[in-house]
Write a protein that binds this DNA or RNA. Sequence first.
DNA 1: GCCAACGTTGGC
DNA 2: GCCAACGTTGGC
Length: 157
Amino acid sequence: MAHWLFKTEPGEFSLADLLAAPGRTTCWGGVRNYQARNFLRDRVQLGDPVFLYHSSCAEPGIVGLMKVVRAGYPDPSCLDPESPYYDPRSRPGHIRWQAVDVRLEARVSPPLLLSKLREEPLLQGFQLLRPGNRLSIVPVTPEEWQHLIRLTNLIPP
DNA sequence: GCCAACGTTGGC
DNA sequence: GCCAACGTTGGC
Protein backbone atom coordinates (compact mmCIF):
# COMPACT_ATOMS: atom_id res chain seq x y z
CA MET A 1 0.00 0.00 0.00
CA ALA A 2 1.20 3.47 -0.89
CA HIS A 3 0.16 6.83 0.52
CA TRP A 4 -0.62 9.98 -1.45
CA LEU A 5 -1.55 13.62 -1.35
CA PHE A 6 -3.70 15.04 -4.16
CA LYS A 7 -3.77 18.77 -4.73
CA THR A 8 -6.73 20.75 -5.95
CA GLU A 9 -7.49 24.42 -6.29
CA PRO A 10 -10.70 24.91 -4.31
CA GLY A 11 -11.90 27.34 -6.98
CA GLU A 12 -11.88 24.41 -9.40
CA PHE A 13 -12.83 21.51 -7.14
CA SER A 14 -13.03 21.63 -3.35
CA LEU A 15 -13.75 19.59 -0.26
CA ALA A 16 -17.28 21.03 -0.36
CA ASP A 17 -17.73 19.69 -3.90
CA LEU A 18 -16.59 16.25 -2.78
CA LEU A 19 -18.95 16.33 0.22
CA ALA A 20 -21.79 17.12 -2.17
CA ALA A 21 -20.87 14.40 -4.68
CA PRO A 22 -22.97 11.20 -4.79
CA GLY A 23 -21.45 8.72 -2.36
CA ARG A 24 -18.84 11.39 -1.61
CA THR A 25 -17.02 9.80 -4.54
CA THR A 26 -15.54 11.50 -7.57
CA CYS A 27 -13.43 10.85 -10.62
CA TRP A 28 -10.01 12.43 -10.07
CA GLY A 29 -9.04 13.44 -13.58
CA GLY A 30 -7.68 16.41 -15.45
CA VAL A 31 -4.08 15.64 -14.45
CA ARG A 32 -1.92 16.82 -17.37
CA ASN A 33 1.61 16.14 -16.25
CA TYR A 34 3.49 13.01 -17.27
CA GLN A 35 5.10 12.26 -13.92
CA ALA A 36 1.76 12.58 -12.16
CA ARG A 37 0.12 10.52 -14.92
CA ASN A 38 2.64 7.74 -14.36
CA PHE A 39 1.85 7.70 -10.64
CA LEU A 40 -1.86 7.37 -11.41
CA ARG A 41 -1.21 4.63 -13.95
CA ASP A 42 1.47 2.60 -12.19
CA ARG A 43 1.56 3.30 -8.47
CA VAL A 44 -1.81 4.44 -7.12
CA GLN A 45 -3.68 1.30 -6.08
CA LEU A 46 -7.18 0.42 -5.01
CA GLY A 47 -7.50 1.10 -1.27
CA ASP A 48 -4.59 3.55 -1.04
CA PRO A 49 -5.21 6.39 1.44
CA VAL A 50 -4.94 9.93 0.07
CA PHE A 51 -4.83 13.33 1.70
CA LEU A 52 -6.86 16.06 0.01
CA TYR A 53 -4.95 19.34 -0.23
CA HIS A 54 -6.22 22.81 -1.16
CA SER A 55 -3.67 24.84 -3.11
CA SER A 56 -3.55 28.35 -4.58
CA CYS A 57 -5.92 29.76 -1.98
CA ALA A 58 -5.87 31.93 1.13
CA GLU A 59 -5.06 29.07 3.50
CA PRO A 60 -3.39 26.21 1.63
CA GLY A 61 -3.44 22.94 3.57
CA ILE A 62 -4.76 19.42 4.09
CA VAL A 63 -8.54 19.38 4.40
CA GLY A 64 -9.59 15.77 3.95
CA LEU A 65 -8.77 12.07 3.95
CA MET A 66 -9.80 10.03 0.94
CA LYS A 67 -9.46 6.46 -0.28
CA VAL A 68 -8.86 5.18 -3.80
CA VAL A 69 -11.97 3.24 -4.81
CA ARG A 70 -11.00 2.67 -8.44
CA ALA A 71 -7.43 2.35 -9.72
CA GLY A 72 -6.08 4.03 -12.86
CA TYR A 73 -8.21 4.14 -15.99
CA PRO A 74 -8.29 6.34 -19.10
CA ASP A 75 -9.38 9.88 -18.16
CA PRO A 76 -12.80 10.39 -19.78
CA SER A 77 -12.37 14.18 -19.86
CA CYS A 78 -9.76 13.72 -22.61
CA LEU A 79 -12.51 12.99 -25.13
CA ASP A 80 -15.03 15.59 -23.95
CA PRO A 81 -14.81 18.76 -26.08
CA GLU A 82 -16.87 20.60 -23.46
CA SER A 83 -14.38 19.82 -20.71
CA PRO A 84 -11.63 22.27 -19.79
CA TYR A 85 -9.37 19.21 -19.73
CA TYR A 86 -10.22 18.14 -23.30
CA ASP A 87 -7.15 16.68 -25.00
CA PRO A 88 -7.29 16.99 -28.79
CA ARG A 89 -4.41 14.51 -29.09
CA SER A 90 -6.40 11.71 -27.45
CA ARG A 91 -8.65 9.32 -29.41
CA PRO A 92 -10.95 6.52 -28.26
CA GLY A 93 -8.62 3.64 -27.48
CA HIS A 94 -5.65 6.02 -27.37
CA ILE A 95 -6.30 8.19 -24.33
CA ARG A 96 -3.11 9.79 -23.07
CA TRP A 97 -4.10 10.64 -19.51
CA GLN A 98 -5.24 8.69 -16.47
CA ALA A 99 -7.86 9.13 -13.77
CA VAL A 100 -8.71 7.33 -10.54
CA ASP A 101 -11.85 7.42 -8.38
CA VAL A 102 -11.64 8.58 -4.78
CA ARG A 103 -14.09 8.64 -1.88
CA LEU A 104 -14.00 11.04 1.03
CA GLU A 105 -13.46 9.15 4.30
CA ALA A 106 -13.07 12.00 6.76
CA ARG A 107 -12.64 15.73 7.01
CA VAL A 108 -9.56 17.25 8.59
CA SER A 109 -10.90 19.86 10.97
CA PRO A 110 -9.35 22.27 11.53
CA PRO A 111 -7.39 22.04 8.28
CA LEU A 112 -3.71 21.12 8.64
CA LEU A 113 -2.24 24.26 7.14
CA LEU A 114 0.85 24.46 4.99
CA SER A 115 2.30 26.96 7.47
CA LYS A 116 2.06 24.27 10.20
CA LEU A 117 3.61 21.62 7.97
CA ARG A 118 6.61 23.88 7.39
CA GLU A 119 7.17 24.05 11.16
CA GLU A 120 7.56 20.28 11.46
CA PRO A 121 11.18 19.09 11.65
CA LEU A 122 10.10 15.52 10.86
CA LEU A 123 8.65 16.62 7.52
CA GLN A 124 11.91 18.11 6.22
CA GLY A 125 12.07 15.86 3.16
CA PHE A 126 8.37 15.96 2.32
CA GLN A 127 8.02 16.51 -1.41
CA LEU A 128 5.07 18.87 -0.96
CA LEU A 129 7.32 21.31 0.88
CA ARG A 130 10.10 21.37 -1.67
CA PRO A 131 10.50 24.74 -3.36
CA GLY A 132 9.11 24.73 -6.86
CA ASN A 133 7.18 21.52 -6.30
CA ARG A 134 4.51 21.45 -8.98
CA LEU A 135 3.31 17.85 -8.89
CA SER A 136 -0.40 17.51 -8.21
CA ILE A 137 -0.03 13.84 -7.24
CA VAL A 138 2.46 13.73 -4.37
CA PRO A 139 3.82 10.47 -2.92
CA VAL A 140 3.94 10.33 0.89
CA THR A 141 6.33 7.94 2.67
CA PRO A 142 4.96 5.72 5.47
CA GLU A 143 6.91 7.76 8.03
CA GLU A 144 5.59 11.06 6.68
CA TRP A 145 2.09 9.64 6.62
CA GLN A 146 2.27 8.46 10.21
CA HIS A 147 3.45 11.86 11.30
CA LEU A 148 0.83 13.71 9.27
CA ILE A 149 -1.94 11.54 10.72
CA ARG A 150 -0.80 12.45 14.23
CA LEU A 151 -1.15 16.13 13.33
CA THR A 152 -4.70 15.82 12.01
CA ASN A 153 -8.02 15.90 13.76
CA LEU A 154 -10.33 13.68 11.73
CA ILE A 155 -14.09 14.07 11.85
CA PRO A 156 -16.83 12.24 9.94
CA PRO A 157 -17.65 13.70 6.52
C1' DG B 1 1.00 41.03 -8.93
C1' DC B 2 5.54 39.03 -8.32
C1' DC B 3 8.69 35.54 -8.92
C1' DA B 4 11.09 30.97 -8.41
C1' DA B 5 11.08 26.61 -10.22
C1' DC B 6 10.04 23.85 -12.99
C1' DG B 7 7.82 21.35 -17.63
C1' DT B 8 6.85 21.78 -22.57
C1' DT B 9 7.51 23.27 -27.18
C1' DG B 10 9.78 23.82 -31.35
C1' DG B 11 13.63 25.51 -34.30
C1' DC B 12 17.91 23.95 -35.56
C1' DG C 1 19.58 15.87 -29.07
C1' DC C 2 20.23 20.66 -27.57
C1' DC C 3 18.49 24.66 -25.64
C1' DA C 4 16.08 29.16 -25.63
C1' DA C 5 11.61 30.81 -25.19
C1' DC C 6 7.49 30.30 -23.25
C1' DG C 7 3.78 28.61 -20.16
C1' DT C 8 2.25 26.91 -15.67
C1' DT C 9 2.20 26.23 -10.77
C1' DG C 10 1.68 27.98 -6.44
C1' DG C 11 3.36 30.44 -2.34
C1' DC C 12 3.67 34.92 -0.79
